[in-house]
Design a protein around this nucleic acid. Sequence first.
DNA 1: CGCTCTCTTGAGCCACGTCAAAGGGTGTGG
DNA 2: CCACACCCTTTGACGTGGCTCAAGAGAGCG
Lengths: 248, 248
Amino acid sequence: MYLESATRQADLRDAPPAQAPSLEGLFGRLPLETVDSGAALFWEGDPATHVFAVVEGVLRIFKILSDGRRVITGFIYPGELVGISLKDRYLYSAEAVVPARLRRIARGRFQDEVNRAPDLRPQLFARLCDEMAAAQDQMVLLARKSAEERVASFLLLGLRRRTGGAVLPATIEMPMTRLDIADYLGLTIETVSRTMTKLATRGVIAAKGRHAIAIRKAALLARLAGDDDGDEDAAMEPAYTRAAVWPH
Amino acid sequence: MYLESATRQADLRDAPPAQAPSLEGLFGRLPLETVDSGAALFWEGDPATHVFAVVEGVLRIFKILSDGRRVITGFIYPGELVGISLKDRYLYSAEAVVPARLRRIARGRFQDEVNRAPDLRPQLFARLCDEMAAAQDQMVLLARKSAEERVASFLLLGLRRRTGGAVLPATIEMPMTRLDIADYLGLTIETVSRTMTKLATRGVIAAKGRHAIAIRKAALLARLAGDDDGDEDAAMEPAYTRAAVWPH
DNA sequence: CGCTCTCTTGAGCCACGTCAAAGGGTGTGG
DNA sequence: CCACACCCTTTGACGTGGCTCAAGAGAGCG
């Protein structure tokens, strides 16, 4: 019960809002703050004073190299937390991509509350787990995927967030700019633009204004993303050659 | 006390071996297993049955894309744990880079023990924290750094692991092959080789056989790594423009 | 001593970055 | 309500860092 699978957050969503203890519950009575588009919540290196819960809008978390190169390590959506850095200083900067609403709780209090309610601990672990898994997938993307695979992977992520695979064509919202996407995918703005144009030309996607995209061929998109054979429905169990030593 | 800074593991090292409860203590009486060079501990997707503590040797943890591209997401050294995946299946594969010695504990028992001894929880959090921080640094490296910066960063990591900055020239051990390094840095084996040759030509490093390297100019190496201005000793506090909105 | 595997080095190419300019949206002020 | 202005995005032409292909040099091992 303590380290449990966290792939789906069903236990958070399905539970009655204020009764079953949840991490979100800790923020319930705190004031709702507004953050302007582009405004910073905190900077990398700042003392980690608060934990934030996003209620509405999207955040970007990023690091900057000394010469200005920026890497967006993730986007934060409503229902997610930021600032559980576990260190005494924030590991990254956080800004609002669009006007956002959020609640903040002092870090010490957050820690106390989690200690007080043992049910919250597995949830916290689960969040960290998801974050770690996402970070590893991102490392794979950045280390070895082509521009097209990166963009396809990104679109697929957006698709998975909206409705667990609804009817096509599904439209996904993309509040961030091309520059944000580029800095998230380790590409340039031009390459992102060109790649999307190419996908649109091939009928895989269709632009719906600047910040929305219709996915027309999800299966093809999954194949283009390259992490799997595109044949993801087949159980992945039998494919493994257990006990074999990898040809090294 | 619960979410504490984990940058240094002093509390683990300084503590008397078996008295102060430590995560390593959980493995103390378990048999020491031997893993051949290149042998796998487990594969990505396997049911996550055990947690491993490395006693000697080095492991590589990695993911593989369907067409064979490999990404090494990290190397595991003595004193570190593997398999705390928090999911019911391993997120990555793990192999021994060189013949290794380790202990294993059933995952359920590991969880029980950690639950029983509350002192262990902060340690576990701290490990995850370090892992997350390392993952983010790696994302920065993979997304935006040049080949030279990547190799310099890698060498610097090795340097930081050995003796917290001893006398130069310090020699760092590199048990992994060039292919491992390449798959860790998102480069090819040829580029790694060329870059190291160039660094050696410039007198920054000097090869000591195939699996050891002497660092001759650590400060220059730090500058070449590119994450900071090379002026890392200066306090980082004053440089920040707090409350300013990033030019977006 | 010869075999094999790793690493180095070279030559050429290509995906993506860079530089530049021309479209659209969107918001603001008249 | 229109028009200007700014910014984001797209598109094009060109350059280049790192990849690919290929061959040779060490190093470890039986």
